[in-house]
Design a protein around this nucleic acid. Structure first.
Lengths: 212, 212
DNA sequence: TCTATAATCGAACCGCTATTTGATTTCCTT
DNA sequence: AAGGAAATCAAATAGCGGTTCGATTATAGA
C-alpha cells in the first residue's frame, strides 16, 4: 500500500542539510521529523532508513558541522605564519563558515543543549543505541573542546611571543567565539555586508583588541 | 477532590524565576509546565491561575529580564561620563547581569526563537489571546532593538568624539553583545573568576578593541 | 464568624510526535 | 529479464504535554 516513491534521489547528505536548516529555524525540540522529511519531499517514516532516530540525526548534523570547521582551522594552525596571522586566518575561516552555512553554524551553537538532554533519563533502556550514542556524544564534546583550544592556544602563543598584549586568554577566547557564534543568529545573506566582509571586521576587531 | 494546597505562598514572581531557571537548563520546547511547576512545588494546572498559558509565561520571563537590563543601562547612558566610560559601564552592567542571573540571561538569548514561533500558525484562533500576545511580542522585539541601540549609539558617539577608532559600529556592537550573551552559556558560579571579574575582562577587551 | 475571592489540586481530554511495522516500488547487478 | 537490496510509504501505536474543568482549601475583609 505504498504510493509515490517518486524520486528516490535523496541521500543521507541531503537530509543532513535539510535538518540543519529546519533546526536553525525552529530548534531541536520544535523540529518534527515530519518537518525535516518535508524539506526533502519524504515522509517521516522514511527518515528512519537513513538515521536510527531523531537524536542520532541531530548528533550527525553537529558532527558534520564541527568537522568541517575544524578541518579548515587545522590547516591554518599547522602553517608557519605568525600568531597574529594565524589568529586572523582562523577568525576569518570560522566566521565565513558560520555565514556560509548559517544553518549548521547556528545548530552547532544552539542545539548542543538538546544534545546534552538527549537520550538520558533512559526512556528506552535500549543498550545498543544508548551505548553508541553516549560514545559519539562524548567524542563530540571532546572535539568541541579541542576546537576551542585551537583558538585559545593561538592567543596564548601570541602572548608568549610578544605579539599580543597580556590578556586572560581563556576569557578572551570565549568572548571571541561568542561573537562569532552570534553571527549565525543575525547574519542574513543579501544584507549590507557579505560574509567575507563581516569576517574582515571581526579579524580587525580582535587583532585590535589584542595588539600590544 | 483537591488535596494539599499546602503553602499557597507562591506568587507570580516566584514562578517567573523558576521558569527562567528551567528554561535555561532545558530550553523552551523541552521545558514542560510540569517541570516549572515542580520547581515551585505546584502542579501544572496551578500555573494557569498565574499565566494564561505557556507562551505568555515565556514572554513574561523575557520581558522581565530585558526590563531589568535596560533600566541599568539607561542610568549610565544619561550620565555625563565620556563615551569610553559610558561604554565600559554598560558592558560591566550587562555582563554582571548575565552572570548574576544566568537563567534570565540565557533565556533572553536562546528562547527568543521560541517566542518568534510561538502562537503563530493559529492552532487556536482565539482572538483575544492572540491579539494581546502579538502586541506584547512586538513590543518586546522593539525594546530588544532599543537595547542594542543603547550600545551602538555609545560606540558611534565615541567614534564621533574621537575617543574610539573608526569601526563598523553596527557589527562591532553585535560582536560585543554576542560575546556577552555567550557568557550566560559557559559561566558557572564558583569558577575561576567571579561575574565581576569576567565583566572586567570584557570591559578591558572591548575598550582595547576600540582604542584609537 | 461568615463569605467572597484566590490558589490549588486531581482527573480527564485531545492533539501531536516519535517510532514501528509490513507492504510496495525502485534500482542495481548479473 | 530476474532477483535481491534499498528506499519509500501508509497506517497504527504509544505516550507525552498543554490545557480545561470542577471541586476543594486557604485567606482576607466585613
Amino acid at each position: 500500500m505504498a504510493r509515490k516513491p517518486a524520486d528516490q534521489s535523496v541521500d543521507r547528505e541531503d537530509i543532513l542539510w535539510a535538518a540543519a536548516e529546519v533546526l536553525h529555524r525552529n530548534g531541536y525540540e520544535a523540529t518534527t521529523m515530519k518537518d525535516i522529511a518535508a524539506q526533502v519531499n519524504l515522509t517521516a517514516a522514511s527518515l528512519y532508513h537513513h538515521f536510527k532516530n531523531k537524536d542520532f540525526l541531530l548528533l550527525s548534523v553537529l558532527e558534520v558541522g564541527l568537522d568541517l570547521t575544524i578541518d579548515k582551522l587545522e590547516v591554518i594552525e599547522s602553517s608557519d605564519l605568525t600568531c597574529a596571522e594565524k589568529l586572523g586566518g582562523m577568525i576569518r575561516s570560522h566566521v565565513v563558515s558560520v555565514t556560509g552555512n548559517v544553518a549548521v553554524g547556528a545548530a552547532m551553537v544552539f542545539e548542543i543543549r538538546a544534545l546534552l538532554n538527549a537520550n538520558v533519563g533512559g526512556k528506552n533502556g535500549d543498550g545498543a543505541f544508548n551505548s553508541e550514542f553516549a560514545t559519539r556524544r562524548k567524542r563530540f564534546f571532546a572535539r568541541r573542546d579541542y576546537f576551542e583550544g585551537l583558538f585559545r592556544n593561538t592567543v596564548q602563543a601570541g602572548i608568549a611571543a610578544g605579539e599580543f598584549r597580556q590578556v586572560d586568554a581563556a576569557i578572551v577566547t570565549r568572548a571571541m567565539l561568542g561573537a562569532h557564534n552570534w553571527v549565525g543568529v543575525w547574519f542574513r545573506e543579501g544584507g549590507r555586508l557579505s560574509g567575507a566582509e563581516v569576517a574582515d571586521v571581526m579579524v580587525d576587531t580582535w587583532l585590535a583588541a589584542l595588539r600590544v
